[in-house]
Amino acid sequence: MKRVAVVVFPGSNCDADTLDAAQAAGSDAYYVWHRDTDLQQADVVVLPGGFSYGDYLRSGAIARFSPVMAAVAEHTRAGGPVLGICNGFQILCEAGLLPGALMRNAGLKFLSRPVRVRVEAADTPFTCRYERGEELVVPIAHGDGRYVADQKTLAELRANAQVVWRYVGDNPNSSVDGIAGVCNAARNVVGIMPHPERRNAPALGGQDGARVFLSMEARNATQPASDVRAVGGRHLRV
């Protein structure tokens, strides 16, 4: 049983669903208020979706300076797994813990509907219970979901297989390269725009998102990043 800290910012609104999904997967999940600086021996940290600080200035721009973020960065440096969902993804990008940024959807509309994504990397702590190439249906709910990065960063993402999820068929927000989720070079920090916590049981219309949380409970979830080796461009768990 992993200890999963769900960070609550002022304006988070997916924190309860995220806590439920982690508990349903068997985790010992609990809330950590954004002003706390103690993650209480968390194995995994999740930054949930919502509208932290009302999305003022830019989505995630103010939340990244919350007191808890120093502890999250420290957890990251130690190789601990961190997942950002939607606004959590935006916060991780603003904090520089993930490359790139998320801009206004090309169509300007807030989009709230199921989308199809393909699992492009199954060697992260949050996707290890999926198969690479598997297609999932998970809901999006965002206004600022268009992933952008400079050419150098995009080349690195491709070379290191850091794209975790990619939109299939319809690219709802015109993300570059259809990117719906990325991880850092060490592969312990993952950000995704779709909401797996909203699709983790048949009663919610499907359970394609459940394995994000089941992955946290898998053996490698707390494995140090140094134990993951790249061989011929593929990342192997050892």
Binding site: L57, R58, A61, I62, F65, C93, E94, G100, A101, M103, V148, A149, D150
Partner: peptide, 8 residues
């Protein structure tokens, strides 16, 4: 540090 995002 805050007011502009260097990526965008």
């Amino acid at each position: 540090r805050l007011l502009a995002n260097p990526v965008t």
